[in-house]
Design a protein around this nucleic acid. Structure first.
Length: 477
RNA sequence: GGCGGCAUAGCCAAGUGGUAAGGCAGGGGUCUGCAAAAUCCUUAUCGUCGGUUCGAUUCCGACUGCCGCCUCCA
């Protein structure tokens, strides 16, 4: 089986072959740290984390790097508003990033390079571009000259002459300095009061796109395997990264460009500028288990738009309950069934194969989840039988393999259940037995109202009664 | 204006040239005093119109609708 990934640059699914066998160099565009992360960020990092986990599961050695953009106009603005330094703002929101993203079971990156820590490398690549004639300094700024690169626009599939400058309605002043409207800043001259670094072109700071080019080159070398990010970064950000890096090195920047679809709310893209975003924090305050969000995201294919609705979340929440019951099976019944918890990797009924088949097809997580749900539902059923009937027809070893397969495959998607908390002993077994006895008496006397009342009384204390022929058993809900 | 994407059941969502996974929600039956659990059954001609084909939801074209990007953006 071969992993196929949809490459934005070629607009096709392509067989994934890393530059170095068994090792994957993956770079993901991170956040600009001036505010809390919203559900769009959550989707993006859950998706790329899942790709990373899948590659690991396939046996690749993955080096995953994700940057923090800690120099930016919006950070400066926020710093001024709050009378903080730029670094105080970015440090704060880097902390917040981890506080929000880690609970989603997104693995930490191997490295988190920051722009402010790569100024020399950035200046070096700018100098290289000037030396090679791809960039020009003007009055303290340095611009990339897009017309010098014949294939500028190859990632996003556009031509300079087709684009409408300023179509987004956000054109800055200072346009006159540029030779072409789509030339973009590699280095920006310092304005008074802003943090600035010395450079051959005067005091200033880096432009937005150059950081990724510089950090990729510095950490990985000329070419990486996978470069990922949100679909809204295709143009101009990634297009410009390609322009910079490939002009500077003469080598392809990335072999596979992967982009996730946007999260929508009420039909529109969730974004800062539309002020229609929900932060991860707001969402989890509901409260929802973070796994609900992870499941919601993975229930859709990563490249498609994902509409955030209450109904879809409710659906994910119920689905999570199902998965959780399957995932808890081992904890609940493993010991009782005499599992030895030995290492075994027998694939039962081709579950892993079917899972892999879906995931190999451009990370088709909905297909992978179908397999996971199948396992979880079977285990939930057996769990119910054990709880209510005290027995199951399925051999213990079979259940053990199924459960391990479930845990393994769910884990590939980063879906994990917390161990069930031991229930607080609000009520002793003797007391329960006494109430059951009272209830049995009431029921024998056809006083079902009293019987139901006693059942509800216990239910309120987390005790679920099950009437079977001749006896009533109980378990903690 | 340019580039790109999407349209599948009540909702979410995969997928395939030979009559469509999965999740959520719902309906009906068996069992039960009622529940719970189990179990059986049940809910789609895949946006519209053409074309190619023995046959298309799946390929091609047109149309309609929605969305994203065109120097803030995950």
């Amino acid at each position: 089986m071969t992993l196929n990934l949809y490459n934005t640059q070629t607009r096709r699914k392509e067989a994934f072959v890393p530059l170095t066998p068994n090792a994957v160099k993956m770079y993901c565009c991170g956040v600009t740290v001036y505010d809390l992360c919203h559900l769009g960020h959550a989707r993006s990092y859950i998706v790329w984390d899942t790709v990373r986990r899948y590659l690991l599961w396939l046996g690749y050695e993955v080096r995953y790097v994700q940057n923090f953009t800690d120099i930016d106009d919006k950070i400066l603005k926020r710093a001024n508003e709050r009378e903080m330094t730029m670094q105080e703002v970015s440090d704060r929101y880097i902390q917040e990033y981890f506080a929000d993203i880690r609970p989603l079971n997104v693995l930490d990156a191997d490295e988190y390079p920051r722009v402010t820590e790569h100024i020399p490398q950035i200046q070096q690549i700018i100098q290289d571009l000037i030396d090679k004639g791809y960039a020009y300094p003007v009055g303290g700024d340095v611009y990339y000259q897009v017309e010098r690169l014949p294939d500028y626009g190859k990632l996003s599939g556009r031509k300079l002459e087709d684009m409408q400058a300023g179509a987004s309605g956000r054109v800055n002043e200072g346009e006159i300095k540029k030779k072409h409207p789509f030339d973009f800043a590699l280095w920006k001259a310092a304005k008074s009061g802003e943090p600035a670094w010395d450079s051959p072109w005067g005091k200033g700071r880096p432009g937005w796109h150059i950081e990724c080019s510089a950090m990729v080159r510095s950490l990985f070398g000329d070419t990486i395997d996978i470069h990922s990010g949100g679909g809204d970064l295709v143009f101009p950000h990634h297009e410009n990264e390609i322009a910079q890096s490939e002009a500077a090195t003469g080598k392809p920047l990335a072999r596979y460009w992967l982009h996730n679809g946007m999260v929508k709310i009420g039909g529109d893209k969730m974004s800062k500028s539309l002020s229609n975003f929900i932060t991860i924090r707001n969402f989890l305050e509901h409260p929802y288990d973070p796994m609900v969000l992870r499941l919601f995201v993975l229930l859709a294919h990563y490249r498609k738009p994902l509409d955030f609705t209450e109904e879809a979340i409710a659906s994910a929440e119920n689905g999570w309950q199902t998965l959780q019951e399957g995932l808890h099976f081992g904890q609940r019944y493993g010991a009782k069934l005499g599992w030895k918890l030995s290492e075994m990797s027998v694939d039962s009924n081709g579950y892993k194969e079917r899972f892999q088949e879906s995931m190999d097809d451009d990370i088709n997580t909905p297909g992978g989840l179908a397999v996971i749900f199948e396992l979880a539902k079977e285990l939930r059923k057996e769990s119910n039988l054990l709880t209510h009937e005290g027995k199951t027809e399925i051999a213990s070893e079979v259940l053990e393999i199924q459960w391990k397969t479930l845990v393994e495959l769910a884990g590939v998607l980063g879906i994990e259940a917390q161990p069930e908390a031991a229930t607080v002993e609000e009520i002793g077994e003797a007391e329960i037995a006494a109430i059951i006895e009272q209830r049995t008496a009431a029921r024998n006397a056809k006083n079902f109202a009293e019987g139901d009342r006693l059942r509800d009384e216990l239910k309120a204390k987390g005790i679920i009664l099950v009437d079977k022929a001749g006896e009533t058993t109980w378990h903690r809900g």
